[in-house]
Design a protein around this nucleic acid. Structure first.
Length: 570
DNA sequence: GCCGTTTTCGGCCCGACTGTTTTCAGTCG
């Protein structure tokens, strides 16, 4: 039982409780706990093993702490088993269908014996749903449509893909008469690594004109809802887009509201309530009197808080930090002085040394590390000792032409199954830095994998561990790893860990970044670019660092070349 | 079931839209 499993148990239990008609706040408590557990940087098994007190986690009290401990020791969650005797466990999956909430699910189960997605599909196809009280032909049709859509699959999109879809849509809306502001809020603005939908916020002198134009956007496949202040569509790509229109004086309040996260909003409103204020998407109110709402900063100020950057809005301590003046001064893209992980066509990249260097200079960098793969079974076109030395000579020739910029000699070295490095130790010493990474044996258990990485870091030539979890978003799970032990080991050895800015990787994630800051291990943000153009992915890595509360001082490549090289020394 | 800058008990966010209704419940974000 790992964190995602426990979170899933609580989520399922919450749905069943809801169907049973339990206290809604108790239901919410399970949902909150599931969310907390899902976002933990450490495995709960390890935390409990280390004697951690789970009640210190937000949303987890005495009761849930005991239940979690039970789940971890017995592998079972008895309350769910008990409730499953009366309600089928698969009932919970029905809640994923839009339009189905606890009341309708309850009705479906009691009247039609619908207990799973398959039952639902059968009942809908037989036309049995429309006869139910509170149902009708439209709801039945929507459910059928959703069942078909799910069969065709759509999952969360990578942030970079969402940007490609959202950009042109935003341009279309901005091109509408009367539109003043048009921005994407939601998890997109919080810079989550993947987004499930796009929330667009618009201020417009004539509300209805922008809604009318929105549904005419050529990429729209389906209009799911359409009113005077909001509309929801599904694009041909499958992505759902919500549009909200608010008056200009409500722009800040609405931006807070629609940026979320939901948990952040609920906590923020609770804080406002204690001050006798009401927050909604139109502003801050005392009774019926409007007090503020034009900017986000004035909304937060009314709650007695400093402005909170969107990346922090997850209700994971940012509200308390804003109240107490403890918010971090987040690292930004302009702080980045260079990139420490990039490939050329010498290995699996596409561009030349010179093209990579020119692109890095154009970004205003003062250094770029060339980290082509070293030769090793399974690594295509890896550089052997001879080719690596040739590349070093080529770098020397190029560097002779640069002022205020330097290519760093480096290599991405594979960490072998036993923790040794796939590079000739003699050549390694000639490099400015070595980036090491795992590319094989992803299936090791946590102890073996952690030992393997620590052994690699024992070699003093290793400076940076690249993409430390090996995950590929939507494709490959991270390998098992004791992140706490890895980070403590890295700190002891003065080895750095990488935030990989590839939109498909983005590991370390936000929670890991926070853990790194707490442990005091230094990080780098690198693009792992395989083309000159994708050196521009740096911003995604910076987003991830910001979500992890990191400041420029936590990131080695915000330093100038001399300081960086000093920090790399082991 | 959680939580404490009014509370260790009594609170717990709130408005818009849909589809079903004849005035609103249910769902969503």
């Amino acid at each position: 039982m790992h964190n995602p499993d426990i979170a899933e148990l609580f989520s399922r239990y919450a749905v069943l409780l809801e169907v049973k008609g339990a206290n809604p706040f108790r239901v919410r408590a399970y949902r909150n706990a599931a969310r907390t557990i899902e976002n933990l940087p450490r495995d709960i098994n390890e935390m409990l093993g280390g004697g951690a007190d789970l009640t210190e986690l937000p949303g987890i009290g005495e009761d849930l702490a005991h239940k979690i401990a039970d789940i971890v020791t017995t592998g079972r969650f008895t309350p769910l088993e008990e409730i499953s005797r009366r309600l089928p466990g698969h009932l919970a999956e029905l809640a994923e269908v839009p339009g189905l909430g606890p009341k309708r699910i309850k009705l479906l189960f009691h009247r039609l014996k619908v207990g799973s997605m398959a039952d639902l599909a059968a009942a809908a196809r037989a036309g049995r749903l429309r006869k139910m009280k509170g149902f009708g032909p439209k709801i039945e049709a929507n459910i059928l449509k959703e069942i078909e859509r799910r069969a065709a699959t759509t999952t969360r999109l990578r942030l970079s893909v969402a940007e490609q879809i959202g950009g042109p849509l935003l341009a279309w809306l901005r091109d509408t008469e009367g539109v003043e502001e048009a921005v994407i809020a939601g998890s997109f603005r919080r810079r989550r690594e993947t987004v499930g939908d796009i929330d667009v916020l618009v201020t417009c002198r004539k509300g209805s004109s922008v809604i009318e134009r929105f549904v005419l956007y050529p990429e729209v496949a389906d209009v799911l809802a359409k009113g005077s202040t909001r509309a929801t569509v599904r694009l041909k790509s499958g992505l759902q887009v919500d549009l909200r229109v608010v008056p200009a004086r409500s722009y800040g309040a609405a931006l807070v509201y629609f940026t979320g996260s939901k948990a952040h909003n609920i906590a923020l409103r609770a804080m406002a309530m204690k001050r006798g204020l009401k927050f909604n998407e139109y502003g801050v109110f005392k009774g019926a009197r409007w007090l503020a709402g034009r900017t986000e900063a004035e909304v937060y100020a009314k709650a007695g808080l400093a402005y909170i950057e969107p990346e922090l809005r997850e209700n994971s301590g940012e509200l308390e930090a804003a109240r107490d003046g403890r918010l971090p001064d987040l690292v930004s893209l302009s702080d980045i002085k260079g990139d420490l992980h990039a490939h050329t066509r010498a290995s699996d990249g596409q561009d030349s040394l010179k093209e990579m260097a020119e692109a890095a200079r154009k970004l205003g960098y003062s250094y770029l590390a060339i980290t082509d793969h070293t030769a090793h079974v399974g690594i295509v076109h890896g550089l052997d000792r001879r080719r690596l030395r040739q590349q070093m000579a080529a770098i020397d020739r190029l560097n002779a032409k640069f002022r205020d910029f330097r290519l760093l000699k480096s290599a991405e070295v594979d960490i072998l199954p036993d923790g040794r490095l796939a590079i000739d130790p003699g050549v390694a010493k000639e490099l400015d830095l070595v980036v090491a990474a795992i590319h094989t044996k992803f299936g090791n258990d946590a102890r073996t994998q952690t030992d393997r990485l620590l052994r690699a870091m024992d070699d003093p030539c290793v400076n940076i561990i690249a993409h430390p979890t090996g995950r590929l978003l939507g494709e490959r799970e991270p390998y098992e790893l004791d992140m706490q032990r890895l980070m403590e080991g890295a700190r002891e050895r003065n080895c750095l860990l990488e935030i990989n800015a590839q939109p498909s990787r983005l590991d370390l994630n936000g929670a890991h970044c926070r853990l790194a800051k707490q442990i005091g291990v230094r990080l780098v943000i690198s693009t792992d670019a395989h083309t000159a153009e994708t050196l521009g992915y740096m911003r995604f890595g910076v987003d991830q660092a910001r979500r992890g509360w990191l400041e420029a001082t936590n990131i080695a490549n915000t330093r100038n070349l001399a300081t960086l090289l000093a920090q790399l020394k082991r």
